[in-house]
Design a protein around this nucleic acid. Sequence first.
DNA 1: TTCGTTGTTTATAATTATTCTAAAGAAGAT
DNA 2: ATCTTCTTTAGAATAATTATAAACAACGAA
Lengths: 136, 136
Amino acid sequence: MKSKEEFIEKLRNSSLRPTKQRINICEVLFNRDKTFHFTISDLFNLIKDKTGEKVSLATVYNTVHAFHKKGYLKEIPINSNQTYFDTNVTDHHHFFDVKEEKLIDLKNEDVGPIEIQKSIPGKKIKSVEVLVKLED
Amino acid sequence: MKSKEEFIEKLRNSSLRPTKQRINICEVLFNRDKTFHFTISDLFNLIKDKTGEKVSLATVYNTVHAFHKKGYLKEIPINSNQTYFDTNVTDHHHFFDVKEEKLIDLKNEDVGPIEIQKSIPGKKIKSVEVLVKLED
DNA sequence: TTCGTTGTTTATAATTATTCTAAAGAAGAT
DNA sequence: ATCTTCTTTAGAATAATTATAAACAACGAA
Ligand SMILES: [Mn+2]
Ligand SMILES: [Mn+2]
Ligand SMILES: [Zn+2]
Ligand SMILES: [Zn+2]
């Protein structure tokens, strides 16, 4: 359970003004034990439910992008009509339950080291992500 | 270089009527040496260029989905505003050049075997795909 | 070959996620 | 308090995709 002051501090340190909207979004995103996988619409609805205050959809988009740019959120590459984000910004992989449309974390040690044996001249590797699709 | 008759045969065997639109799309998609990574809009433009005949955008969508459902095309999981498809339907992985927005095949042996050490009760693994993002 | 059936194409409208715009409001600095 | 800069917001715009429904083409049976 993080305090509101911690979020204000974090926002200030990132040169993001600590507005009440951003603080509410922080509470919903970062006040949890487990990693959180979400879409913008998930988050939009949760904010109302958990804080009682409404934040405009535009602000949710703005804030998620700001946090993503600052490295506080990770974008998960799957094909869906909506973009998925993750509060776990460490290198890790995912299960995607196609039926439930739910992401599940895979620890790096659950996958093992991945050695890419090919390289493209002039390019360097930015990320290596494994997506394991699950069916019933 | 496959003949038009081969495509007609393939379509018939898939209970898809061999219309001239579908045959044209087959020529563009499958008459090539290397694997082909594309978006709907790539394909739509190529059809005009390569066959001289225009196919409606709706038909391009319909046909790509039909081919995908039949297993002749693979959908590549990346976050982009457009969906990417692949004529190489075997299990394999990808580089994604973020700047150029281009996919590049990674052979299975360029990645090595991936052992998933975790399982979810009641679910089985449908696919395991590695996406390697490239930057300059 | 003709006819009836069913599948396909197409233009166009609808849907939906996301981004843009510009005005009002809030935060920070002086 | 005042000024500046950043942020929020409603609503409009954009763009990929999907739905609709009428015209059309392929097929199989007569
Ligand atoms: Mn995760
Ligand atoms: Mn490929
Ligand atoms: Zn982002
Ligand atoms: Zn598809």
